[in-house]
Amino acid sequence: MHDYLQVTVGAVLVYNFVLSRFLGICPFLGVSKRIDTALGMSGAVIFVMTLASMATAAVFHLVLSKPVEIAGLGTIKLEFLQILLFILIIAALVQLVEIMLQKFSPPLYNALGIYLPLITTNCAVLGVATINAQATYSVWLSTINGFFSGVGFAVALVLFASLRERLEMAKVPKPFEGMAIALITAGILAMAFMGFSGLC
């Protein structure tokens, strides 16, 4: 139980992907201009992170974590292939899911469709897979970590989008207009999230 609490709260607040680990910054800045696009992106990120964590953790435990015996070459640890394999698997998985979504659930496809290809090879998605592997979480715990990392991303993105929607109307000094004030806002938001450090 303690484990689960640590993973969930840790993923959402303490080790927030965007604001503490600084992964997935490009969608964070790219789709945070309006709340509805931020919500769509968040949904897609949660979806992909959960699936990717599950698939990569399964592959990690089945293939990568054990030394493999190959005839004529002796035993080899395949761990060094981790990043390459994870990218392949995540990209293929998302592509597959996209095709199936289009067939079986058009409404969900319409909601997530344009965001799915955007985040397939995003660093946050690969990041959660490597973090799971590093911490040697079980497949179940990895899935949970993936889901809540996605939720953490969503929280950060939606908070930031609502701030930016208000900034649009505010009188910003000329030199800070546009991306500059967005980055300053992101920095302040990250500092606010530092308050959670040490929670678990």
Partner: peptide, 11 residues
């Protein structure tokens, strides 16, 4: 050499 080959083949 063997490792590289395995990586290549596996991927």
């Amino acid at each position: 050499m063997g490792t590289a080959l395995i990586a290549l083949v596996l991927l």
